[in-house]
Design a protein around this nucleic acid. Sequence first.
RNA 1: GGUCCCAUCGUCUAGCGGUUAGGACAUCGGCCUCUCACGCCGGUAACGCGGGUUCGAUUCCCGCUGGGAUCGCCA
Length: 478
Amino acid sequence: MTKPRLRFAPSPTGYLHIGGVRTALFNWLWARKTGGTFVLRIEDTDQERSTPENEQIILRELAWLGLHWDEGPDTGGPHGPYRQMERLEIYREFSDRLVASGAAYRCYATKEELDAAREALRAADPKAQFRYPGWWRDKGPADWLSDRPYVIRLRTPSSGHTGWNDLVFGEQRVPNDTIQDVVLVRSDGVPLYNFGCVVDDITMGITLVARGRDHMINTPIQLLVYQALGVTPPTFGHLPMMLGKSGEKLSKRHGAVSVGEYREQGVPALGLLNYLVRFGWSFGDQEVFTMVDLIDKFDWSRTSRADGKFDAAKLTAIAFEHMKRADLMDDDGYVASLLPWLARYGAIDERKLRAVLPTVRPRARTFREAAESVDWLFALEPTFDEKAKEKFLLGEKASVLSPLRDVLASAPEFAAGELEAKVKSWAEERGYGLGDVAQPARVALTGRTFSPGLFEVMELLGRDVTLARLDAAARLRG
RNA sequence: GGUCCCAUCGUCUAGCGGUUAGGACAUCGGCCUCUCACGCCGGUAACGCGGGUUCGAUUCCCGCUGGGAUCGCCA
């Protein structure tokens, strides 16, 4: 059996949408699982909105996510080029074939004429739906107008049905008379989606097309194109839609929808993918997966058909699992991802960073949070929270700082366990609750009222810095 | 409106004729505790409605209702 070939075919008309990532992920997973090929194709035939910058963003985000492609615009491959605007001769060849065989025809109707007809119909019957009136459907080469622009339309059968066995939705059947004579090629020679897509999938040897359910309406049209071309179509599978919080199409109004925004928030790539894979796919009660596990377990039979609503809180929770658990992301990977977030502190002592990891990982939900939570360790001095400073360092509560400093100074080893034992017994002797001592000390050392365990903080800072910060804080009262 | 699709807690979902309808997130209690988290324990919370089929329907069929997609020289 030949290996499957799958593709992700975004149009570079904007940022990379997380719904698109979900589609890319399912295709990618299947390619990886089966040893097939994952192709990245850029559908840039909308020249109004497509930009090279957007293409670069898409490539960069996919790479960040780890969804690497085997063939694509930058890597090349045996079926290139991988940008549609570089494939115009190919489409031309295919559309010529269709016109020659009579499966498609030239239509010289202008946009203005069509708009006028559309308007006229609306005026006569507001509820009627406009269809192309077929002005050029039954004309031939003898009627062609020289020096006038024309589009190429598909001659759609007026009876019968077009159907397919959808990988996710099962048997589908659509009456042909509901399908219009769609435009295949614009008057400037650039193909439209339903044509370019089919020609590319044919010439790129795509065997399985998995895409969002919003494309399900296009599938019968494309099937008709395959039929007109005399080519066996690939398998189609449609994925349920990812909708916004209140059930409409997911858009910017619901918060972040572009991958870049999540990357900038410090969400781990695998955490994002893990959330997305559970959207329309499940494996019993399992919520959390490694990529290896996912490739092993993914399959089309476990996909669901119902649309769902995007839930940012759940995404954060799943991503948090990846931030916490070493079995999902080892410390090497964690450090590699965190380092860029620490750039403001200059060169980072990686040993110090690794030492603090056990106290950071259970707390930080994103890399951004992780970076913020270690500023006390890497900055020269703590950045004080003003309210905390006033409450714990400027008032009576700060009186414990000097004696505490002396107790700590006498410790032979500056290790968390030892410091804790020493401070606890000292506090008990003096009749202090540990909290009375810990909060002022915490603010003195970290600048904040919350931090990892106080004695771990001390150990990580080391004797010199700890004592110096306590001294400095004690002096604040004057 | 035409065509197509869907329907289990607020959300993502498990379930594939007989279950006290399970898990996760969120939420609400409690425990732990030097703070904040993590963690742990527990609670609230769902099969849209009406007909069939069946000894028995969340599960199979039909209708209704509700939601969604789409109807471009966008993709």
